[in-house]
Amino acid sequence: MNEQQLHDKLRATGLGGIGELESSARDPFVVVEASVLLEVMAFLRDDSETAMEMLHNVTAVQRETGFDVVYHLCSYSRHHSLTLKVIVAQPEGEAGDWEPAVPSVASVYPSANWHEREQWDLLGVRFNDHPDFRRIILPEEWIGHPLRKDYVYPSTFGEIPLELDAIPLYERDENDPPKPSEPRPAGTPLTQPPSEYSTRPDAGGRAPAPEKKGES
C-alpha cells in the first residue's frame, strides 16, 4: 500500500480529526488530532491490511508556533510506512516554559515508552497517562529541558563544574569559595564566541573559497 491508500483506509474508518495527506513532502505525512490519536494507532496496528507492527520513532519538534509530535510507523509484513503528526499550537500569552501535552501511545505500542520519556527529558513535552513518566537520560535533579530553543546552559551541576574555565574541585580554597558566575542570556553557549576565522554558521559563515584553476 502506498501512503494515499493508507490515508483512504484511515478516512474510511469514520474517525474524526484526520487531516489531509501532505503528499508534497519528502515523507508524506498525515496530521491527526490528539483526541483520536490512540484510536488511529490501534486501528493501524490491528487492521490486517495496514498491519503497522512497529512504532519506529517518536520525535517532538519545537517550532515558533508550538510543538509537533511526529510518529513514524512501519509495517514489516506489508513493507510500507506512514508518518503521523500531532500539532500542538502554543496558546497566546503562554510563557516560554509552557509544556505541551499529548496522549501517550505506550498502551498501544510499548516501544513508545522510552521514546516518550526521552522527548519529555530533552524537550519538555508531556505525555498523559504514561506508565512510567520520569526523566530517562539526564539526572532527575536536572533543571530545564536542553533541546528547547531558549535553554540556558548551566555552569555547574551540584558541585560538578561544567564550564571550561572552572576551577578544579581539588584546587579549590575553602576560605575563598568561587563566586557564582553571572546568569547568561538565553541560548548562549558555554564558551567564548567564535573567532573571525571560525567556520561556524553563527560566525557569519565561511568565506567563499578562491576558485581553483582547472575546476569547472
Binding site: L138, F157, I160, L164, A166, L169, L190, T191
Partner: peptide, 22 residues
C-alpha cells in the same frame, strides 16, 4: 583533556576530567 568536540555545545559534559580528579 579539555572538552574535545563537545566543548561548546555540550550542556552536560565536564570540560576535562582534571576538573574532577587530579
Amino acid at each position: 583533556c579539555g572538552g574535545g568536540p563537545y566543548v561548546k555545545w555540550g550542556y552536560n559534559t565536564v570540560k576535562g576530567v582534571h576538573k574532577i580528579i587530579p
